[in-house]
Simulated assay, not measured.
Amino acid sequence: MGCIQSSSNPTTPSSSSGSTPSISKLTLTQDLNSYQEAIKSDPNLQSFDSNLQYRTSQAINSLALEVEVRSLSLNSLKEVTTSLLDMNQEVVNILIESKEDIWNNDELFVLVQDFFDLSLLTLDFCTSLQGCLKNARHSLSFINVAINHFDKDGGGDYLGTLDYLKRFEGCEGMFSEEFFDLFHAVYARQVKMLKKLQVQKEKVDKKMRNVETWRRLWSMGKWVNSLWKKYEMELKGQRELINAMSWGSFIVIKDLDNIKALVDKLGVEMEGLVRNAQFAINEEEQEAVGVAVDEMKTTVNDFAKTIDELSDYSDTCCRDVRNARSVIVRKITKYPSGSV
């Protein structure tokens, strides 16, 4: 693993019973293994490790040479001290670069922008849905009038009932092709957004694991350790933001699933009502009108209930979208200028 090595000396006396080493062998081994794994995937760590090996070798060689001649000069001590300070500076440089990487993260910035743009598109979809439901209620009004008219005179004026059924049949469709195109576009983008957020979260989690490894291996002084802690807190803030957006997208996707199921149900119910109306119109007989009206009575209440349920889900989706936007804004403004 570079300059950090472990060796065992069989002649070295074992620790006295009851004594506790400051760092257990198991913990150290785990930390070193984590460090080795991090090096493989992090160019910054690779560069740091190479520099660390070189400077440590210089310091050790200098000390070894002085020991051979039984003297330690001020120059050798200065060289060792300088090497240690340089190693600390390498840590600081990586921290500074990492900080810039966090708050100037183009991927996260684009994701936040896309999240807000998509939330507006989702609100547009909900507005479109409410417009469709308005058309559905308009169609429902003709059915209710037709049923009431037929019941009022016992079917005597069945031609008047047929007139209302014809008006119902002539109503434009509830859901246009543009509505379904908008739904599929919003749904696909929400799913894609959730996947992108999951990928970004994995990247942040990987950085978090690296930070934990570095803090265990390089806690060299309060100042450097405070930098590590600050970097870790900033990463946590970034992850918190990603989690909030992920949860918002997940909730909206569930809302859209429920809306689609109810839209399909409403479509089936509408088809049944239209078939009955067409049957009465085509037959143009009192008995046929009576049969159609009776059939409609069994489904018209379900039709009205589904309209109301869809309206409620549209309101719920709008509320969830706005809540998610508010949460993200609070997460962003929670951090000082220069943060996410």
Score class of each variant (00 low, 15 high):
274 V>G: 01
81 T>E: 11
300 V>E: 03
83 S>K: 05
171 C>W: 05
334 K>W: 09
59 A>K: 01
234 E>D: 13
264 D>G: 03
86 D>Q: 14
315 D>K: 15
337 S>F: 13
135 N>I: 12
77 L>N: 07
38 A>S: 15
310 L>H: 03
57 S>H: 06
294 D>W: 00
308 D>A: 13
55 R>V: 01
162 L>T: 00
273 L>C: 05
170 G>D: 11
115 F>L: 07
101 D>V: 02
43 P>E: 10
6 S>I: 14
28 L>F: 05
245 M>N: 05
89 Q>I: 06
324 A>I: 00
334 K>T: 03
27 T>G: 06
166 K>S: 09
153 D>N: 09
210 N>V: 10
176 S>L: 07
265 K>N: 09
327 V>A: 07
140 L>Q: 12
117 D>E: 12
235 L>N: 09
1 M>V: 10
95 L>C: 11
106 D>G: 08
51 N>D: 08
57 S>C: 05
104 N>G: 10
332 I>Y: 10
263 V>M: 08
59 A>P: 00
142 F>R: 03
262 L>F: 07
2 G>F: 11
70 R>Q: 13
21 P>E: 03
223 W>A: 04
227 L>I: 03
90 E>R: 10
54 Y>T: 11
1 M>A: 13
314 S>Q: 04
115 F>Y: 13
50 S>L: 05
111 L>T: 05
163 D>G: 08
114 D>H: 08
50 S>D: 07
114 D>Y: 02
253 I>W: 05
91 V>C: 09
320 D>P: 01
174 M>A: 06
255 D>I: 02
288 A>H: 02
138 H>Y: 13
309 E>H: 08
210 N>P: 00
97 E>P: 01
152 K>W: 06
179 F>W: 11
313 Y>T: 06
238 Q>D: 06
21 P>I: 12
284 E>H: 12
108 L>H: 03
212 E>P: 00
63 L>E: 01
197 L>P: 03
44 N>Y: 13
83 S>E: 03
130 Q>D: 14
321 V>L: 05
224 V>Y: 06
47 S>Q: 11
224 V>F: 04
58 Q>L: 14
157 D>W: 02
120 L>F: 06
143 I>A: 02
200 Q>T: 10
105 N>Q: 05
210 N>R: 15
264 D>T: 06
66 E>Q: 15
229 K>N: 10
213 T>R: 07
231 Y>M: 01
303 F>H: 13
87 M>S: 14
83 S>R: 05
39 I>N: 05
285 E>I: 08
122 T>L: 03
3 C>K: 11
53 Q>L: 11
25 K>H: 09
256 L>C: 05
163 D>H: 14
327 V>N: 11
191 V>K: 15
200 Q>S: 15
340 V>G: 03
169 E>K: 15
1 M>H: 10
147 I>F: 02
12 T>E: 07
275 R>I: 11
61 N>P: 00
16 S>A: 14
152 K>G: 02
11 T>N: 11
23 I>L: 09
250 F>D: 10
239 R>W: 04
201 K>F: 09
292 A>G: 03
297 K>V: 00
334 K>H: 13
235 L>V: 02
289 V>H: 00
96 I>G: 04
300 V>F: 06
31 D>F: 07
166 K>M: 06
41 S>K: 15
192 K>N: 12
117 D>K: 15
117 D>N: 15
126 C>N: 09
91 V>T: 11
102 I>C: 08
89 Q>D: 07
244 A>E: 09
3 C>Q: 10
